[in-house]
C-alpha cells in the first residue's frame, strides 16, 4: 500500500485510487484511417516495464480526477505525479 500525492487533493492512501494502465497512449483522432496493425498497436501494445514507468491513476474515491504517475514498478517508489496534459518534473 503506497501513498499517492494526488495533484488535486494531496497525499492519500493507495486504496482511494484505481490504476488505469500505461500513460501517454493517445487515442487516434481518426481511427478509421488506420490499418488493422496500427489500430492493434494502439489497442493492445503496452510496455509493462520493470522499472520506471509512466502510468495513469484515478482518484476514484476522492476528487474523481485522472492524472499521471511516474512509478518504479520494482519498488513502488513514485518519482512524480502530474496532471493530464502536463509534463513531469522527475527528481
Amino acid at each position: 500500500m503506497f501513498i499517492i500525492n494526488c495533484p488535486y487533493c494531496g497525499e492519500r492512501d493507495q486504496s482511494e485510487f484505481t490504476a488505469g494502465g500505461e500513460a501517454h497512449i493517445e487515442r487516434p483522432k481518426q481511427p478509421t484511417e488506420l490499418s488493422d496493425d496500427e489500430w492493434a498497436e494502439f489497442l493492445f501494445m503496452r510496455k509493462n516495464i520493470k522499472g520506471v514507468q509512466f502510468e495513469r491513476w484515478n482518484h476514484a474515491h476522492g476528487c474523481r480526477k485522472w492524472f499521471n504517475v511516474v512509478r518504479d514498478t520494482t519498488n513502488d517508489k513514485i518519482h512524480a505525479v502530474y496532471k493530464m496534459g502536463e509534463k513531469p518534473s522527475i527528481d
Partner: peptide
C-alpha cells in the same frame, strides 16, 4: 461505478 469512471476518463483525457 465503472461506466462513470470510464466516461470521466474519456472526458478528462481524450476529449477535454
Amino acid at each position: 461505478a465503472n461506466v462513470l469512471s470510464k466516461l470521466e476518463d474519456y472526458l478528462q483525457t481524450e476529449w477535454p
